[in-house]
């Protein structure tokens, strides 16, 4: 079972988030660029040909997965159907519902609008990656306690959105929570409990 995201520092900030939020003004601070730069000076990669699978190396929940994927396969498809991590859910596959939300380099993104090939060189964290063995992470615990879902299908995405929010904003205001959750639809309408869960998760993460 994957453990904690190794790029996450003790303060919950990712390296990328830290640098950009400091506004250093430097160009080229993105983690992906760093990783590409490491020991691979400007050797342009091969074209992944259409209609065939090619080797794709993904870092997911702190582990390296080498998979065969077509260029057009999304990260969501590879996570679910190739690797078997079904936490992230397909809801629209058009970047409109958020059920597929994962963290990429510490920030929430839609896995359905991310090509698997494009996720290479980044740290991907899925719902499964928030677990510590069989123990729920703080956001998951808060969602369970606050009954922050009904059918539960949007829930993995909601949890990841809140996780992403809290990693850069550990003490969000009520309005920041609402904005942070506003990229995830919940047709059952559990928003109010989601807000409460996010608030509680922030407390749990702060050790309260």
């Amino acid at each position: 079972m994957p453990r904690k995201n190794p790029t996450t520092g003790p303060d919950g900030l990712t390296r990328r988030g830290f640098l950009t939020s400091m506004g250093t003004g430097a160009i080229g601070v993105a983690a992906s660029a760093d990783l590409f730069a490491a020991g691979k000076e400007a050797v342009d990669p091969q074209v992944m040909p259409a209609g065939r699978t090619s080797k794709v190396v993904l870092r997911i929940n702190g582990e390296t997965h080498v998979v065969l994927a077509e260029p057009r396969w999304t990260l969501l498809y590879v996570l679910r159907e190739v690797i078997g991590l079904t936490g992230a859910k397909p809801g629209c596959e058009r970047g409109e519902c958020g059920a597929c939300t994962v963290l990429i380099d510490g920030v929430a993104r839609y896995a359905c609008l991310t090509l698997a090939a494009e996720a290479q060189g980044s740290e991907v964290t899925t719902l499964e990656g928030l677990m510590d063995g069989e123990t729920l992470g703080p956001v998951q615990t808060a969602f369970a306690e606050a009954d922050a879902f009904q059918c539960g299908y949007c829930t993995p995405g909601q949890i990841m959105a809140v996780e992403g929010l809290l990693r850069t904003n550990p003490n969000p205001s009520a309005e920041e929570i609402r904005r942070g959750a506003s990229g995830n639809l919940c047709r059952c309408g559990a928003y109010k409990h989601i807000f409460e869960a996010a608030h509680r998760a922030a407390e749990l993460k702060r050790g309260k």
Binding site: F36, A42, V43, D44, P45, Q46, V47, M48, P49, A50, G51, E70, P71, R72, T74, E93, L115, A117, E118, Q120
Partner: peptide, 20 residues
């Protein structure tokens, strides 16, 4: 669902323009 396509992620602007 997406149609089939080749994919490349060059590291230089020049290479990208060439691929285009």
């Amino acid at each position: 669902m997406f149609p089939d396509f080749d994919y490349v992620r060059p590291q230089s602007l020049q290479a990208a323009i060439t691929h285009l």
